[in-house]
Design a binder for these strands. Structure first.
Lengths: 339, 339
DNA sequence: ACCCCGCATGTTTGCGTTCACATTTCCGCT
DNA sequence: AGCGGAAATGTGAACGCAAACATGCGGGGT
């Protein structure tokens, strides 16, 4: 027999009914120890594994949670997925992750959601840092709980985000505190909520301090785009403090600055965002705003779990506070007067 | 009616039998255009989605491929998963990714494999850069095709890897070619096949050139561990050329060297591995060995697809060639003589 | 005019599991 | 000894779908 063994095969081998096998598998009470061991032995001998599809079909529920992730090559998303995964393992849920390929986000996320729903996912986590995610979310039938990460409040679903507005504010204030007249900002992609929030935080801190906001530069998340912006900034003598969209952008900026002979932090102070593991080893070590991605992942799963037990969608939200990590790229402004 | 609609609901609404609905859904021939549109309309009105579990149960096959990934916060693994995901989308397969949490790899990967098998995955891709993966692989029933990425030849399954031996050799030769007497190596974790292969490549190139192999330093994959090793190297005047396990390690080494006043590349030449996107923006821009991770992902899926159609496991393997990316961290050895 | 074939559709069955219910077994008590 | 009841086990149906088979219908060839 080459066919995969099924429950009745195990039952026959153990000399019991298939239902008893099911009971053993599901840890039901009222199974005598001797039968249990006999069944377990039969399972082991046959190499039996239960067919999850049949189980889901019969019970109508599954303990699979789906994760829809945007761009998992980025440090943030991938850390969060990892954290969600670990948390899920602890809660005896299993995770299936749908990776949205970069090139056609909308179509891809539709397909992935479609798939996850068809597979009978008990709940869905959307890593939803861009607007496109909202549309995919609408495809989810109302019965299925949803949690977004980095979603927008107006979406009216449970959400957990890092308070990136606070982060932007923190970064800007830190620079201001060192005596800079104002702070320049190299922003991330405008479709991302995170970069918009960081930008608002920057503007708010500037306004609070009565500082004029210089024109904003737009980068992506990459060092390459940061480099481009950095070349602009390097030509502007007034620019003594820069808040970069993230650490990699900051790296690009630093590089461009160095090429033009502008030293960090003596001539220009610089602050990043994320605190990627290697940021401490940039040259000089990057001052940055740390996001606790793992925390976010855990919270997201907790929120989902809450909904799973109550059975209804809720819209409670959680904010995770970022923290400043002070290293070597921030100093006071250069003293004017030399030629 | 709050219950999710099923096929017969659609059938009733469209005034046909459930089987006709099934035929429309599966694109079977012999359905008249008018019925087709009627069925499609009913599906849309009801918001019907088919139950994948039932489908899998009925057909006995699924077009889900499982991916078991080790540590997806690393750049390499996450790029490969991403590439596999894109390729799968193109082949009308859907992907479910099991993320093995770092802390207990063996137990976690067991559970994940178990899960994937129970879910009826048609095939499995193991991102298997460490030995622990082999054990999890053994849990997979023989009927299910397997492809490993960065696996070992002796595992006797289909595999695709970057030729990291060649990469290590390339890196070392490049340094030697610039006139360095020998090349030091800061290796990656010894459990990883990749770091062992890079090490062998390094030794081979040294041996071919008749150069003595200096003692090897052991790091992890992180900048932090590279930094530790770099502090050692910085004290060794003889050390003029370093081949680092990967780009982040190289970054750490660079940092340590700089702190001790040893310039790259004037005093010490340095070469990394991977070519992470930001490597070009390190200071100075890092010379490195590029791995085409996306290629690896695509090849892996192709190998799996081959097995899926033939229905039998094969053990064909593929190597993808790394390439050197020459930037600014390699130069000739410093001229001796000055005090 | 007949037959046959192919298209369009319906009917039945089974996939492997769990659930609700039915049945048997066993033990302790009077 | 006999009875009650809980513990242990078995039986049948249902989950939603697709495959195999069955049916009805119309049209072209002879």
């Amino acid at each position: 027999m080459s066919r995969r063994p099924v429950m009745s095969d195990v039952a026959a081998r153990a000399g019991v009914s298939h239902q008893t096998v099911s009971r053993v598998l599901n840890g039901h009470p009222h199974v005598s120890p001797t039968t249990r061991t006999r069944v377990l032995a039969a399972i082991a001998e046959l190499g039996y594994r239960r067919n999850l599809s049949a189980r889901v079909l019969a019970t109508g529920r599954s303990n699979v949670v789906g994760v829809v992730a945007q761009n998992t090559t980025l440090y943030g998303p991938s850390s969060m997925v990892q954290a969600i995964g670990e948390a899920a393992l602890g809660a005896d849920l299993s995770l299936t992750v749908g990776h949205v390929a970069g090139y056609d986000a909308t179509a891809a996320s539709r397909r992935i959601v479609e798939r996850l729903v068809q597979q009978g996912a008990a709940g869905l986590v959307f890593i939803a840092p861009v607007d496109a995610a909202a549309e995919a979310m609408r495809l989810v039938p109302p019965g299925i709980p949803i949690v977004t990460v980095d979603g927008l409040p107006e979406w009216d679903v449970a959400n957990v985000s890092v308070d990136q507005y606070a982060g932007g504010r923190l970064a800007t204030q830190h620079l201001l505190k060192h005596g800079h007249r104002t702070v320049w900002h190299v922003a991330g992609p405008e479709q991302w909520h995170g970069s918009r929030a960081r930008e608002s935080g920057w503007r708010a801190a500037l306004a609070e301090a009565g500082a004029q906001a210089p024109p904003m530069l737009r980068a992506g998340w990459s060092a390459a785009s940061g480099y481009q912006c950095g070349r602009m900034l390097a030509r502007i003598p007034d620019c003594t403090a820069v808040f970069a969209a993230n650490d990699h952008v900051a790296l690009g900026v630093m590089r461009a600055l160095a090429e033009q002979g502008r030293r960090v932090p003596e001539d220009v102070s610089l602050i990043g965002f994320d605190d990627v593991p290697e940021a401490a080893y940039f040259h000089p070590a990057l001052t940055t705003i740390r996001q606790e991605f793992a925390d976010v992942g855990r919270q997201a799963l907790r929120l989902l779990l809450d909904q799973l037990v109550t059975g209804a969608r809720t819209a409670t939200s959680t904010l995770v506070e970022p923290a400043m990590v002070d290293r070597d790229t921030v100093a006071g402004p250069p003293v004017r007067g030399g030629s």
